[in-house]
Computed example of a mutant assay.
Amino acid sequence: MHQYAAGRSDALDDARIAELIGAVRSALDEGRAAEAPSVPGKRPYVKEGAVPLAPKYAESCRRCGRCVEACPVEAVDAMTLKTDKGTCIACMGCVAVCPDRARTVNGLLVKAAALAIKKQEGGRKEAELFSVA
């Protein structure tokens, strides 16, 4: 599943993160009030018409709850472990943390998504970092 952004973060990303840390540290040292940064985009962060890649759980699931904890948008129901397709942003965090590999995505949908992403490839994409500093 982890086939995109291979080799990232790299030295360029690390340098940008160090810059951000320095700016935040300076703002804190100067006593400037922290405000929430303005982040472009809309919620939910799912492109209209995107391939729905909401993971499902398999019988091998031990119900450890790691998938529930890992979901940044609370799309995995704690009782049923079902993924709300309307809420899921397809980050695959739940898949990555599953110790039993019990959370999966339909292989055909993954292939369709991979083709859609392949069409948009255009080289290195710079990370966007947001700070009020």
Rank of each mutant, 00 (worst) to 15 (best):
L53G: 01
V39W: 01
E35H: 02
E48L: 11
A50E: 14
C61E: 11
P55S: 04
I21M: 13
I21C: 08
A58N: 14
G31R: 11
R32H: 08
Y57C: 12
D29R: 08
R32A: 10
S60D: 14
E30K: 12
S38G: 04
G22D: 13
V46H: 02
R63G: 06
R63N: 10
L28H: 10
L20G: 00
I17M: 14
C64R: 05
V39Q: 03
P44E: 02
E19C: 02
A23Y: 01
P44L: 01
G41V: 07
A18G: 07
A36S: 05
G41P: 05
R62T: 15
P44R: 05
R32C: 04
A34C: 01
G31H: 10
I21R: 07
P44S: 03
S26M: 07
R16H: 01
K47P: 00
Y57N: 15
V51R: 03
P37Y: 09
D29Q: 10
I17Q: 08
S26T: 12
L20I: 09
G41E: 09
Y45K: 11
E35A: 12
P40L: 11
K42W: 01
E30G: 10
R43E: 13
A23G: 08
A15I: 08
V39F: 06
A23E: 07
A27E: 08
P44V: 04
R32E: 09
S38C: 02
R62I: 15
P37G: 06
P44W: 06
R43W: 10
G31L: 08
D29M: 08
A18K: 12
R63F: 14
L20A: 13
D29I: 05
R32Y: 02
L20P: 00
P52T: 12
I21H: 05
P44D: 05
S26Y: 06
E19H: 05
R16T: 02
K47Y: 05
E30M: 07
R16S: 06
E19L: 08
I21L: 15
R16N: 01
C64I: 11
S60F: 05
G22Q: 12
S38E: 13
S38F: 06
A36D: 04
P40A: 10
A34L: 05
V24E: 06
P40K: 10
G31S: 09
G31P: 04
R43P: 01
E30H: 09
P55M: 07
V24I: 15
A15L: 10
